[in-house]
Design a protein around this nucleic acid. Structure first.
Length: 497
RNA sequence: GGCGCAUUGGUGUAGUUGGUUAACACGCUGCCCUCUCAAGGCAGAGAUCACGGGUUCGAGCCCCGUAUGCGCUACCA
């Protein structure tokens, strides 16, 4: 059978960048090997799963360009099958009914509770095979079940032995059975549990390679036991190093908020290809060390063997808007904004402008040449798509804001500009052919005659015409804005008031 | 507590079977370019390769221990 991988997120919130990376690596591996990339929504936790989340996951994958094949699978739809499988294991004697009353756990303190219980068991010398219901006779078990007594179903793990598998990333992994409790397959309310569901679904979907986060590394042993009990072939595993927060702690949705959400990057103007490129470099590096890689190059160079084992720190500074996410991601995005083919950038800028009511249909036909030229000029110093509607607003609308600092620095500082700028407007208006060159000549001539430095007029114009202190070469800006707008804005005097 | 995994400049990563001054990218500093800001070019700061032992003529690479971090240890996923 050909190679099949899957991405199996649980729909309990937006798509986490760590999950997105798992999806990417699965997808890359499928492309690389000619295999299939499948999607399964693990919504067995009905309480926490939401439809919005499922939608956002699908949108996120689409945004990153990670198309999945075949029908997506909803794990909850297979619950009956999972239950049946567990019951079959009971009949075969590979699992047993546990009539121990369920002990409720407070969700907030589970981690601690689990650790405490484990510690207590270790101290009291309780072994993992001590469950009294392990060896209850089948008749008695059947009777109690028939009498309506509630029970959970647990897998019967042998007393002696160990599981072993070779992880493609982490190497050979051993675990003694004594370290694994008889795992619960079915809750007392009949609800199938995670480890059972993944294994059965992976078998059903014919998954040959399981590529997922390192947090599942030790779970894998339990799952291997399950594959054995179910008589199925064990797939290959590749676990991915985790992505950590700057303090090297867990990067969580709860603690770190939107910076871990993939949609944030879309909403803040990232280019999908750029973010995908950045994500690929977390825990993996191409053999030739080149970092800006197209999808095709990514696919071509990718290999599971080159993934390394230490966790990656996602470097950002909370409470600092300038460093709201990893600097390298920001740099990479700017790199894409600057260098990608304009035709590919254009639709993205169009969407951005449209969302801000700055888009005009002429940009698509009559003014297309102007639009492309403008993009090419201004994108050189932009970092995200947002910049086109914010910093770039003055190129697409006469209704733009003046930056206070810029006005102070480039206009108010020298009162002569109150006269010089309108004078410049006159000169520009007189030009018969209006280009960057003629505008420059006119400006320099005026500067010379007025005995001021050209820079004074140039910087003053920049703020007067674009509201900003920074931007492209001013003569190019005159050209882009055109004679009419250049003249009007130079003359307006708006920022003086 | 037990088990597992990890540990190369601030961050992401390279470092072939152990062999001269530990490489690249982001970020940072300075200079050049220049009408500003970027970009670009040049130069530079920053790592006793977590720590301690050991093996070896020689270790970031091998072995042991320690520390720290993370993960798992649930009738969560």
């Amino acid at each position: 059978m050909s190679l099949r991988v899957r991405f199996a997120p649980s729909p309990t919130g937006y798509l986490h960048i760590g999950a997105a990376r798992s999806a990417l690596f699965n997808w890359l591996y499928a492309q690389k090997t000619g295999g299939k990339f499948l999607l399964r929504i693990e919504d067995t936790d009905l309480q926490r799963s939401t439809e919005e989340s499922t939608v956002s996951i699908i949108e996120g994958l689409k945004w990153l360009g990670l198309d999945f094949e075949e029908e997506m699978v909803f794990q909850s739809a297979n619950a009956a099958k999972h239950r049946a499988a567990a019951n079959k294991l009971v009949t075969e004697g590979k699992a047993y009914r546990d009539f121990t009353p369920k002990r409720e756990r407070d969700d907030a303190t589970v981690k601690q509770g689990v650790a405490d219980r484990a510690r207590a068991h270790a101290m009291e010398g309780v072994d993992a095979r001590s469950n009294p219901y392990r060896d209850v006779s089948k008749d008695e078990s059947d009777q109690r079940a028939a009498a309506g007594e509630p029970f959970a179903v647990r897998l019967k793990i042998p007393r002696e032995g160990k599981t072993r598998f070779e992880d493609i990333v982490y190497g050979v992994q051993d675990r003694d059975y004594s370290e694994i409790e008889d795992l619960v397959l079915l809750r007392s309310d009949g609800h199938p549990l995670y480890n059972l569901s993944v294994v059965i679904d992976d078998i059903d979907m014919g998954i040959t390679h399981v590529i997922r986060g390192q947090d599942h590394l030790t779970n894998t042993h339990k799952q291997i036991l399950l594959y054995g009990a179910l008589g199925a072939e064990v797939p290959r595993f590749a676990h991915l190093p985790l992505i950590l927060a700057p303090n090297k702690g867990k990067l969580s949705k709860r603690k770190h908020g939107e910076v871990v959400s993939l949609t944030t990057y879309r909403d803040r103007g990232f280019i999908p290809a750029a973010f995908r490129n950045f994500l690929a470099l977390l825990g993996w590096a191409p053999p030739d060390g080149k970092e800006i890689l197209s999808v095709d190059e990514l696919v071509e160079q990718f290999s599971l063997e080159a993934i390394h084992r230490s966790p990656a720190v996602f470097n950002f500074q909370e409470n600092d808007p300038r460093h709201w996410t990893d600097e390298k991601a920001l740099w990479m995005n700017a790199e894409y904004v600057r260098n990608m083919p304009v035709e590919e950038l254009l639709p993205m800028v169009k969407a951005e402008l449209r969302a801000n009511k700055l888009w005009r249909e002429e940009y698509d036909d009559n003014d297309r040449a102007w639009f492309v030229k403008t993009l090419d000029l201004i994108r050189q110093r932009y970092h995200t798509l947002k910049d086109f509607s914010e910093q770039g607003r003055a190129y697409f609308s006469d209704d733009f804001d003046f930056d206070e600092a810029a006005v102070n620095k480039n206009l108010r500082k020298d009162p002569r500009l109150r006269e010089l700028l309108p004078a410049l407007a006159d000169r520009l208006e007189e030009l018969e052919t209006f280009t960057a060159e003629t505008a420059e000549a006119a400006l320099r001539k005026l500067a010379e005659e007025s005995e001021v430095k050209a820079g004074l007029l140039i910087n003053g114009s920049r703020t007067m015409l674009t509201g900003q202190a920074v931007g492209p070469s001013m003569f190019e800006v005159f050209d882009i804005l055109g004679q009419k707008r250049s003249v009007e804005r130079s003359r307006s005097g708006v920022p003086w008031f």
